[in-house]
Write a protein that binds this DNA or RNA. Structure first.
Lengths: 234, 234
DNA sequence: CAGGCTATGTCAACGGCGTTGACGGATGAC
DNA sequence: GTCATCCGTCAACGCCGTTGACATAGCCTG
């Protein structure tokens, strides 16, 4: 992997495309997100991106070294969208919960980007701002530095992990998703209550919750546990 | 997506490959895992798998409908490896912790498979056994059904989410990983303490923990929170 | 206005990918 | 021995990311 920061931001000579479009990093990122949103996760390829832009696919490489670079840029865009207009309320539980839910939903809006970007580090401004905001909430609430950093890590990784998982499920072709659901139900139906008593006893609850994400509940658990540790410190 | 269960398990006529290998589902799965382990995540392609098997790539399609089917089979294999030799101890905290750590490390051993398989449902025996084991631990501990199912979902998704995230990080080419790390450090070094006071105050702690997974800590938080809810019920 | 420089869009090509359909040699049944 | 069938092989299709050579538009200098 070579350097990031590809073509030096100072770009003055812009030649319009054969089809009359003037390219830019911003336009490419927006078009990529639109492509994902409209035509599904797997529609994001350089060739289709070029077609959607009205430009030759290889023109993208004047703005990003590779698709990996493009994805990092998209990732930072998503973080920015998640944090837009957010303000701390002073209630650290509510703040943490709000940040988590925003990250989760921002990533879910663009599943493929989430899956590929969740574990990367962009080092760009939106990401740094988000880190600062989370640490601010925790340290202002009174967590000692060591504990704040641990909780920060657990919180971020949990949020991104759930987002990646849920996004991956969303990114599945509809046929595969319903096939998976049918596999669950038929495998439950076939189970013997004597060999799998606990599944049999809770089958109705298990399948009922299958569609929705477990993230909000897990987030509450994390916040509760953190609150307990904070109380114990006093 | 078409039906699973591809070529009917009763297969009697096996012709050896040009290179003298006798194929089977099991051999293909094992070879695929070996390929991932030895040559990295992106080495698993049908063509390289064929080469590693000593067979024509298209021969794989006699045993699996597609690479997706193959991945589901690999996923169930991983779950089986994670649960091998596990026995409940009667201490639900210890049991839950042990199951979580086993899932996490089994998936980390095969990052690419984890990333692709974590969100899928195989409906095979290993998966069902794992679900039964987890539910058994929770219900035996005294959690009411509704609560047990909720914690089950949070627990499984958290484990798989972290596993997918950590696996994705492991699956990165070494160059990209160190590049990400350098980006972190240099972005911290450049930060102004007046604009990002909380990052500046904890920078030494943040970078120190960067390499290790936050999963064990998050797992403890979840178990603590679950314990608190159990205590509140009594 | 002329000429050149260079940024940037275009083109053609490379090698790799998953997947498919036709082919035919080996295998087991009788 | 004959025959049907399984299953490994081959060749091909249409995608993919990426690259290097080329051409041309826009700006700068004079």
């Amino acid at each position: 992997m070579s350097e990031r920061v590809v073509p030096e931001p100072r770009r003055r000579r812009r030649r319009p495309t054969k089809q009359g479009v003037v390219l830019s990093q911003e336009l490419i990122i927006d078009t990529a997100l639109r492509l994902i949103e409209q035509h599904g996760a797997e529609a994001l390829t350089v060739r289709r991106l070029g077609a959607a832009l009205g430009a030759d696919p290889s023109a993208v490489y004047r703005y990003f070294h590779s698709t990996d670079d493009l994805l990092l840029a998209i990732a930072d865009e998503l973080i920015g969208l998640a944090q837009a207009d957010w303000r701390a309320t002073g209630d650290w539980r509510a703040d943490l919960r709000a940040i988590g839910l925003r990250i989760h939903s921002a990533y879910l809006a663009h599943p493929q980007a989430a899956v590929l970007a969740a574990h990367r580090t962009t080092g760009r401004t939106h990401e740094t701002a988000a880190v600062e905001a989370i640490l601010s909430v925790l340290r202002t609430a009174g967590f000692p530095d060591q504990e704040a950093v641990r909780i920060y890590h657990a919180f971020v990784d949990q949020s991104l992990g759930f987002a990646a998982l849920d996004a991956a499920a969303l990114a599945l072709p509809a046929a595969a998703a319903t096939a998976d659901l049918r596999v669950w139900q038929s495998s439950y139906a076939r189970l013997d209550a004597t060999t799998h008593p606990h599944i049999a006893a809770t089958a109705h609850l298990l399948t009922a919750d299958m569609r929705s994400s477990g993230y909000p509940y897990a987030l509450d658990l994390l916040i509760d546990a953190a609150g307990a540790r904070l109380a114990a410190l006093r």
